[in-house]
Every structure is written in C-alpha cells, then in structure tokens.
C-alpha cells in the first residue's frame, strides 16, 4: 500500500515533467534528432556493414559524394558514409561516459565540499587545483601513455581531466544552497546530512548540473579527437568523428566534404543534446510550470 502510493506519486510527477518537456518545441525537436542518432547507433550494422569502414580501395580515393558513396570516400578510398555511421557509437560513448562519469565523481566531491566545508573541503579542493594546474591535454597524454592507448584508458584520462571543473561548479552551487534557510529548516526537523543532500541540495542544483553536463558532451567528443589524432585515443583504422575531422585537414582544399561531414555530425549531435538539456532543465523547474 505504502509503496504503491509513493510509486504513483512518482509516476504522476514524471508524467508531468514529460508533458512539460513535450510542450517545449525546441526540446522536443532536439529529442527527436537525438533519437534518430541513437537509432543509427543501434542499427549501424544493418545500415551499412562494418567491413566497408576499414577496407581500403585505392582506385576510389577522394571521390566526391555520388550515388555509390553518398558522402564520398577518403584518402584510402574508404566510404565516409560507413565511417560516419560506425563512428557514432564510439564518439557518443566517449562523450556520454566522460561527461556523466566526471559529473558523478566531480559532483559528489563538489557537493560534499560545499556542504560540509572546513578541512575536508580545503584538502579536496587543493588537490583538484593541482590537477587543473596541468594542461588538460598534457595530463591525458601522460595518463594514456602510462596506462596504454585504448578506449577505456582514454575515457579514464578524460574523466580525470574534467573532474576539477565539475567539482568546482558543484561546490559553488552547493555553497549557495547550503546558505538557504530551508536547509536549516530541514535540520531543525531532524533530517540527516545525506537526506538533506539528496532531497534538497541535489534537486536544487539539478538545473545547473544538467546544462553544464550536456554542454560538456560536445567538448569531450572534440578533446577525444585531439588524443586520437596523436595516436593515443581510438586506434586507426577504427573510425571516430574527431579523428576523421583531423585526418581531413590536409585534403581540405580538394575535398572539403571530408571535413564538413564529420564536423556536421558533431555539430548536430551536440546541438540536439544541448536543446534536450535546456528543455529538461525547464521541465524540472516548478517555477516555469505553465
């Protein structure tokens, strides 16, 4: 009985959030585009077989878009269409795991620091200052070089590089929330610290966190590409959007499509995610209920 009631309340609230999300045209458009991209990710092999991405075919090199190769071919004669499709899972996976991973780690540290303050706060924040004192790419290069170049290590390296930013942001949000009187009110009612954090601090910080996380996804995809470029990220011939963008630079004069297409892929993905994030923030905020 008790559980039922709680569930139904939660469901009502989720439905309400969904309804408000759908009312926002831009957010809905972003959501639809993003769902299309996810379909491409899931059905990549159905759309075009994976072999096409790695099989070089020298006679066809640098063919502009045509019926046989919808997006043209690259310097080895590989189909750009196939490579774009099969790069989507890699790029998106990196983007999402890194963003949410660093949100989880950095956010937990940041909120704990902002809420508890004192010596704990000092210790953690000074340590994070140390990390962010190193240039992000250098840190990632060193880590990947030490751990060995593969996708898992690339993700770990990128997460470490992004933690400090998220932690600092969450800390400032938590600090401003912990000064609000409703936190004191919750204490007066006997709430434990954990309950206060999850029931009051996190929901009120949510809007800032959502926006920053979705904004960071496109940035992460791009920074993964620079690592792929120097051979420390996704290993060629595996396709990856950032790496494709980089490879195409020297052929830009003759074959601009080589650069435009992966660029567009990154652009469309990040815009749709940002639009979705914006809509989600508004849908979660009871103040904007209409």
């Amino acid at each position: 009985m008790k559980k039922n009631r709680r569930q139904s309340r939660a469901i009502v609230r989720l439905k309400e959030i969904w309804r408000r999300f759908c009312k926002n045209r831009i957010a809905l458009a972003g959501f639809i585009v993003f769902m299309c991209i996810m379909m491409v990710v899931v059905f990549a092999d159905v759309i075009v077989p994976y072999e096409m991405t790695e099989k070089p075919s020298p006679p066809d090199r640098l063919t502009p878009p045509c019926a046989e190769h919808p997006f043209g071919t690259d310097e080895f004669g590989r189909s750009v269409f196939a490579r774009i499709i099969h790069a989507a899972p890699n790029s998106l996976f990196i983007g999402f795991t890194v963003s949410f991973g660093s949100l989880l780690v950095g956010g937990t540290l940041g909120i704990a620091c902002g809420y508890f303050g004192g010596r704990f706060d000092n210790l953690i924040m000074r340590f994070l200052d140390m990390i962010s004192a190193l240039p992000g790419s250098l840190l990632a290069i060193v880590m990947v070089a030490v751990l060995g170049p593969n996708m898992r290590n690339l993700i770990i390296a990128l997460i470490v590089g992004h933690i400090a930013g998220f932690a600092r942001m969450c800390r400032s949000v938590a600090l401003s929330i912990s000064e609000q009187e409703y936190i004191k009110a919750a204490k007066a009612g006997g709430s434990s610290d954990l309950r206060i954090i999850f029931r009051h601090a996190v929901p009120n910080a949510a809007s800032t966190l959502i926006i920053n996380t979705t904004m960071s996804i496109s940035g992460v995809i791009l920074s993964a590409c620079s690592l792929s470029f120097i051979g420390l990220g996704v290993q060629p011939p595996k396709p990856e959007w950032g790496a494709m963008l980089n490879d195409a630079r020297q052929y830009f004069n003759g074959s601009p499509y080589l650069m435009v297409i992966p660029g567009l892929a990154i652009l469309i993905t990040s815009i749709s995610i940002n639009m979705m994030g914006d809509g989600l923030r508004d849908a979660l905020d009871p103040k904007l209920k209409s």
Partner: peptide, 13 residues
C-alpha cells in the same frame, strides 16, 4: 522553529 524569510525557508522544488 519558524523562520524569517518565507522565500528561502521552504524548498522551491
């Protein structure tokens, strides 16, 4: 306790 500021003493969410 009843708090001073009715705008910040209750959770807006």
């Amino acid at each position: 306790m009843i708090f001073q500021d009715p705008y910040s003493s209750i959770d807006p969410r």
